[in-house]
Nucleic acid binder design. Sequence first.
DNA 1: TTGTATAGCTCCT
DNA 2: GCTATACAA
Length: 317
Amino acid sequence: MGIQGLLPLLKSIEKPVHLKDYAGQTLAVDGYVWLHKGAFSCAQELCLGQPTQKYITYFMRKIDMFKFFGVKPYVVFDGGYLPSKAATEQERLSRREESKKAAMELLHSGKSKQAQDHFRKCVDVTPEMAYAVIQALEAAQVDFVVAPYEADAQMAYLEMKGLVHGIVTEDSDLLVFGCKRVIFKLDQYGSGIEILHENLSMVRDISFHEWTMTEIRHMCILAGCDYLPSIPGMGLKTAQRVLRRFKTFERAIKHLRMEYTGAKIKADYEEAFRKADLTFLYARVYDPVSHSMVHLNAVPEELEELVQTDEYDFLGP
DNA sequence: TTGTATAGCTCCT
DNA sequence: GCTATACAA
């Protein structure tokens, strides 16, 4: 889902770029994006369990494009799902099953063209597909890493450690994780748009002047993110207003509780907010240098013991 | 003005 | 996952 409405809000700081602008550099790539797009070319085969190589070919063509422009790709795959995302996954699964039923019926009545539309809605990227692509990457000596949980946090870590110069993705969450250089909408010719974190203060549609990374992260969580749905009626602009007025999210939530009478804000909302915030800060990632599991940012002393407990399995158990 | 709900898109020629 | 669009509070 990402952060609803974040990218349109950042239009004024978008910069058109081309892969060749990054010649000689390494860019982290969200493997899921290419896996999913590649799966579209062979949705029916994948849904019916028929053997196909098309999604691998598609993926490697993207890799070749990077190499053609002198850019080194560092592919990042998703690992396990966080417990906090289980509900979303279940919802997606049942929607896919519905589409598959419709696709099969159309196929059996000879309407293969219409069936294809439904196959594309039910196609899912499986770990087996990721593994097939990984083998092709190994053969081509392309760097990759499987994140213990979410690719987003893993890519943010690679950038933070200086292992990559920027991140290619379609997911606005990356900016909330604090990434410095994110490239969106990369097309088949190598064109895309770049957003730099340092330019956030220059956004015209909303005033982020003097805003810290913490405030921007809190605004995004309040407006709804993958780890916590928003309070009904709370979008980015309203979230920005209440945070500007009340300074901290605790005070903002307290105020919203008084204003929004009734059961609109659940009793555990503030607790859930804190957990979402900690996930953006301290998600578990893999460190390719030391070959060990670490947290995205150094965990402060007062939290060190807590993050080891089951209470904190939302960071990745 | 702002948020939400819905539909259409990702492949390829 | 994204965007574009129409509609609602």
